[in-house]
Each structure stands twice: as C-alpha cells, then as structure tokens.
Design a protein around this nucleic acid. Sequence first.
DNA 1: ACCTGAACACCGTTCAAGT
DNA 2: ACCTGAACACCGTTCAAGT
Lengths: 223, 223
Amino acid sequence: MVLADSGGIESLSMRKLAGELGIEAMSLYHHVKSKEDILDGMVDIVFGEMELPSPGEAWKTAMRRRAESTRAVLARHPWAIAILDSRTTPGPATLRYSDTVIGYLRAAGFSIPMAAHALSILDSYVRGFAMQEASLPLDPSGSIQAATESILEQQPMMSNAFPHLGAMAAELILKPGYAYGNEFQFGLGLILDGLERALATENGPQRGDAPAEGGAGSQSAAS
Amino acid sequence: MVLADSGGIESLSMRKLAGELGIEAMSLYHHVKSKEDILDGMVDIVFGEMELPSPGEAWKTAMRRRAESTRAVLARHPWAIAILDSRTTPGPATLRYSDTVIGYLRAAGFSIPMAAHALSILDSYVRGFAMQEASLPLDPSGSIQAATESILEQQPMMSNAFPHLGAMAAELILKPGYAYGNEFQFGLGLILDGLERALATENGPQRGDAPAEGGAGSQSAAS
DNA sequence: ACCTGAACACCGTTCAAGT
DNA sequence: ACCTGAACACCGTTCAAGT
C-alpha cells in the first residue's frame, strides 16, 4: 500500500490510490476513516523501517548508526520528512521505536533529562539535514553543479552583489569532489562528541565544584 | 499580502487570497505567474525578517542570536519551515542573508569549508528543531501536558509495553516546569562549543602532529 | 491595461443506492 | 459486508470576453 506512492511522488490522492488497487473509486472509506488515517499508517511504516540500536553496542556507534539509518530512510521517503512528527496519534512502530531508543540511552548511563537532550538534538539535526538534502536539486551523482550554475548565470552580478556566496560556490560547492551529503558526517561527529562531553560532566565532574558549566547540561536538572 | 495568511493557517488558496484583497477571483494572474510565484515571494519575506549578524559581535554570540532569531521567525510562520529550502529561485533577501552570514563567518576566521560546515549544522539543527516544535500540540503555556496525557490514557498498557517512554513522560515531560522549547538552548550551546573546538583545531593545532582527529574537521579539506 | 465569468481537470468526503 | 455513481464544496489555471 505504501510502496506504490513512496515510489511515486507526493501526488497521492484517494482516487489515484484506489485506481492503483484495482478498486474503482471511493470505497476506500470502508477500510479507513479518512486520508489522515492512511498517512498515520504510512508514517508508522516509515518508523518501522528505521534501524534500532542493539543492546551490545557502544552508545556513540549505536547513535551514529541510528542517525545514518534515519537519514537513509527519510531519503527514501522524502514526503515523510514534513509529516513525521506532526501525527497526533503515533502508531505501534513509532512508540516501540521511541521506547527502545530511550531505554538504550538509559542503559548507557544517560539520566532522563540527558536522554531527552540527546534525543532532541540528534533528531532535530537529522530531520533538519534530511529536509535540506531533500530540497536540493541534485543530479543522480549527488552534486549540485547544474542548479548552482544556473543560479549564478541567472544573476551575473552575483560575484559583485553577493561576493561571499559567489566565493563559496566557486571555491567549494562547484568543485568536482564536493557533495553536500558529506556535510552530514561532520555535524553528526560534532554532536556525538559534545554529548560525550556533557555526559562525562554530568556523571563525574572531575573537579568537585563547577556549579553550572556554560552551554551544556544547565536547565531542566529537576526531578 | 503575506500578513493576511501567515496570521491565518496554511489554508491559503488563490480564491481566498483574492477575496481578502477585495478583488473578486482569478485576476491575480495578471500580477503573478502562478501560486509558486507567490510562495517564492513569501519565503523571501520570511528571510528578510531574520536578524543578520552585525560586524562587531563575537561569532558565538552572533550565531546564537541568528539561531534564536530564525527559530522565532519560523515559529511565527510555521508554514514556511517545510518550504524554506525548497524554492529553486531564491529572492534578493534570501541571497543577501546567505551572503552576509558567510561573509561574517569568513571575517571571524572560518575557512570556506569550515563556514560550510558551520552553516550546515546550525541550519539543519535550527530548522529541524523548529519543525519538531511546530508539530507539538502545545497549549499557549508551552507545555505538552494535555496531549501527552491523552496519549497515555489512550493506551493504559503504555507503562507495561513502553516503560521507558512512560518513565520519561511521567518523570520529565509531565512535570510542571518542563517545556520542550527549553531543549533548544542545550543543543545550540553544544553545537557552538563544538564549532569553537573545530575552529581552534583547524587554525592552530597545538600539538604539531595529530593527522586526522576523529569526528570533526576531517573530510573536504580540499581547496 | 486591468478585471471577470465560465469552464477544465482535479481534490476529499458524504450518502443513498445497489449486490 | 462490501462496493458504487452522483453529488457537494472545494482546488489551480486557462481563455475568451468585457471595460
């Protein structure tokens, strides 16, 4: 049921979906309550496709794998990115996914507030990156040459009016080796390193005082 | 023109927009080429509302202000979040915005690849967070109590089937003081600290060797 | 130049009617 | 129980026709 339209585009309509199923028109309403129902189910299937951490792994590699798997799944189902969190009635796969990840972090030594911090930053980053990546006009090779060049040509005063943008395009983005997708690893590594540091500070602050270190782990220390 | 519908919901249609303008129907097509044109213009206005860093500031506070401003603007225009990057013809405010931020980072000592890294991680995080925040069923106070409780009640076996999710809800999210919005600061601080560290490593690697430190600043060192 | 009604090809959804 | 045609209230867009 999902396969048909994730392959296709976001032009999924009740009439087309019915057509795809041999069924003729709007007898879909005997099996689902509304189109929202169908989207709920599709989102739950997407969550079901994401890799879950397995108990043995070190938390950094587990979270790295989870992030990469999420990114891959969302690249396969770009329509899901904008919808993932907005469903008000999470399905069983969604609940199971969240529960497993939280349990995994707790077992790895994260307090509840720290686990919430980790989930928030990792999921925000991964979903945000997936969104930007999905909206890139890439050719199959993963480069953005064509589109960037067309923008540059559209406005030949680019290099005058927007010199820094022009320089970044010329000296980085348009270079043969560059692919935006590679930026993912840098950010993910930075975040995981930061979490490791925050975790160490929380669990054993080497120097006994340090009342509230700036930036990480400050608020919501309640409970 | 934008004001009317950003106040309202995403139920913006050509007919309603025309109605709002006294104009009667589809004479809008004499002023714009298509609805896509209108969306392009609206997105450019949204970029125009975002605070730009001013040359004097330290880069960390400048980037923090930029992130907070972006989050505030996107909270004001939730419909824009999913559309921001997907416009293929960026408007003048969009180009000016990007150019200024890149120029600012360059002046603060970021190399071009490092500036690209910083832009990618900061924008992914901020947009991703804005997305998650926008999809939260918040009451005006900023708490998620009502919605979370209704989910918990919907499935009373929660605490059995999903114990860790239940624990996080009971011991953190449902506590009076908790507001998801506060998670923003933790992640932002973590990322800015990580960028500072990556920048220091790039500019002056204290210990002369260290061929490729894990995680940050590895690939795309070309040019 | 600017606006307009009618029309086209679509939507999600309801509802009485068929088997 | 399951499906269906017709209908309702919408979409974005085109186009010939008005002033």
